[in-house]
Amino acid sequence: MSTDLNTDLLNNDLLNTDLPDDDLVNPVEPFLRTDRMPHIWCPGCGIGTTVNCFARALIESKIDLQSLALVSGIGCTGRVAGYVALDSFHTTHGRAIPFATGLKLANPKLNVVVYSGDGDLSAIGGNHLIHAARRNIDLKVICVNNLIYAMTGGQTAPTTPDHATTSTNPYGTFEPSFNLPHLVEAAGAVYVARWTTFHVRQLARAIGEAFQKKGFSFIEVISPCPTLYQRRNKLGDSLDTMKYYKAKSKVKNGAPTSEVGLTISGEIIVGKFVDRERPDYQSMMRAQYVDSLGDRFVEPMEAEVCS
């Protein structure tokens, strides 16, 4: 066969149109606002890959899409909310978690996903991150960690490792970085996992597992930012980065999170680190009210009727 695509395109035989419709649908397509494609993410950005895994996790877990709300903050990953065909909220910088908290508390039937970046969730939103984990609010947090502030042009993030060069640390960063799984475990998360964009099947499975948990679940996805992180640090392009993830990742389920900190080019410990049971915020709240108020307690209205 010809290897020239343009030649192929001229050949009507090759434009196969007699397949059943379902054959022509990418499984991620029903989850996308296809009228907004193509998306704004750079070539080789890993965020789209995580969205594929998210979509496949939704298919696998057979979750009722009508019950699903997705909340993002600001930044590259913050744009996920704008691309998914769900009830989706693009909020303010760092505040995806408290917005999601409001959704979940006011309508406990909702399945609420927070999909945002490392800078959004752990810097400007860091306070909300730890407190939501402490309260064990029933939220599924997907944190795409590209180790940098990407949307604004490659500034140092709380996650920027070692002495990586950034636009605001042009001579190399020197402040220590957050180990996010360790942070959220200490704060109280019931499910903590880390995968990279190389580990697509594991990531999809992890998202599915988080949907089975009641409580604060946190999945960190290490993802390339070829434009602002890899290039500036002479780490190659995103394909090189994916190869690095493949070569240097080590699966250690149950690894102590204190030992999973990231370095600029060293080993990446991935896996499911925490999977434990704690009563979630709403269960605790209800138990407390029932205990204290007895018959006077009235169940919070599910989907408050305003209209």
Binding site: A69, V71, F89, T91, T92, G94, R95, P98, F99, A100, T101, G102, L103, K104, L105, A106, N107, L110, N127, H128, H131, M285, V298, E299, P300, M301, A303, E304, V305, C306
Partner: peptide
């Protein structure tokens, strides 16, 4: 039949309530 939550700061409180609104609450 309702919910109050004391948040970690006013930034959180002022957006949490809006999550509540979009879930249907006043």
């Amino acid at each position: 039949g309702g919910t109050f939550i004391q948040m970690e700061d006013e930034l959180a409180a002022s957006i949490t309530l809006q999550g509540g609104v979009w879930a249907g609450a006043k």
